[in-house]
Design a protein around this nucleic acid. Structure first.
Lengths: 209, 209
DNA sequence: TCGCCTATAGGGGTAAGCCCCTGTTCGGCG
DNA sequence: CGCCGAACAGGGGCTTACCCCTATAGGCGA
């Protein structure tokens, strides 16, 4: 199996190469340090698989994926996510990637992902599958809201460091209702306390850090 | 030369290990996936050198450096910066690090840095030296009330949604001490609860949103 | 040497958050 | 129409956070 590696950090490329070359049937046929190089190499060399980091100079992993799938659709693509988040999961799949692996779990999941790609199957980590399923269930597979407007309103106020009592006063509700909306939002998001809601609110742009 | 590696991404650890073990006189004696683990390993194993990523869960590389230098001052520390930024350079040196290497240049600079540390010398990349000079020139009087290193550690852990009990376990402290540090930090910053601390921690770059 | 700050730890209390329930009202939708 | 989900409200219980207070040990500078 001929594989192409693309990441802007040499250290990461070395780590990937080490991991892959322990497999007797995998051959790393090239490395790229940015997305444009990755695309050019993939189109020219037609590897069985291209492993692309999300964040790269010139072209992101997702942009490179789109171009590779257009010019060389038989090249499978696995996306490596830099961060421990899955916010690019949908875009990656939409761009034509066969799998999405978080870098933190790369050593354990990457080989499983490669084997899945070898069989022509898609691969998602359990976390990614959960995220995907949750999103599909909760927002009907399009860009709608996960939370109801009321819940989002209350999450925003929580993240602005208002107490339940203050929120109840602002919204003319009972404290109990506020608690219920907050609890429902937390349950939907899989969160345990207000602290996690703050980070969610910031990621969603509900408030400024 | 006995070396400890700490990074929350297994792939990066593998890459570092590969790079280091090509050197006949370097032995990687351990890997850590977060700052607390790195500190514990460094204190227990007393390596000649600990290579720490800046951004790690539980304790940042800088926080881990402070604790290592306090409990095992003979352990040299090299800071690896995740991104191509140098905003933590000054704090890294203040914390007791012997060097500061950007990950993008890690394969070329890291060995030079290690050799410098071996000779007991500090190491800065030319870019880092330039940044440092600029920082020293620009830094006059900030005036804000600063948190102690301990307080900052606890603020980070609070903002990562750890409970008092969990923080006490990670830092090997009583819950009461954690409460006191948290309260002192909140008093200094004029904040009333953990929610406000989260936004502070994100603004300060202690955690990602 | 004397203070001051930091880090550590605890006592004791109030307030708040979080979690498990039940229930009503209202509007939309198959 | 009958069902479902959203919004509303509450009971009761347990945990946690937050706020006073005291106290010791160590380091460091005036």
């Amino acid at each position: 199996m001929r594989v192409l590696i693309a990441d802007d950090h040499g250290i990461v490329r070395s780590g990937l190469r080490l991991l892959l070359e322990r497999q007797p049937d995998i051959e790393v046929i090239g490395e790229a340090a940015d997305g444009a190089e990755a695309r050019d190499l993939a189109v020219r060399e037609r590897p069985d698989l291209a492993i692309l980091d999300v964040k790269m100079p010139k072209l992101t992993g997702l942009q490179a994926t789109r171009e590779i799938k257009k010019q060389a659709p038989e090249v499978a693509v696995l996306i490596l996510s830099m961060h421990d988040d899955e916010r690019y999961l949908f875009e990656a799949l939409k761009a034509g990637a066969s799998g999405y692996v978080l870098k933190a779990q790369a050593d354990t999941d990457l080989l499983a992902a490669i084997r899945a790609v070898e069989r022509g199957e898609p691969f998602l980590t359990p976390e990614a599958q959960r995220t995907l399923i949750k999103d599909v269930l909760e927002r009907g597979s399009s860009g709608e809201e996960e939370l109801t407007p009321r819940e989002e309103e209350i999450v925003k106020l929580v993240a602005e460091a208002n107490t339940t009592k203050q929120i109840a006063e602002v919204l003319h509700l009972s404290e109990k209702t506020v608690e219920n909306h907050r609890a429902n939002a937390m349950r939907k998001l899989g969160m345990r306390d207000r602290v996690e809601l703050v980070r969610y609110a910031i990621r969603r742009g509900l408030i400024e850090p």
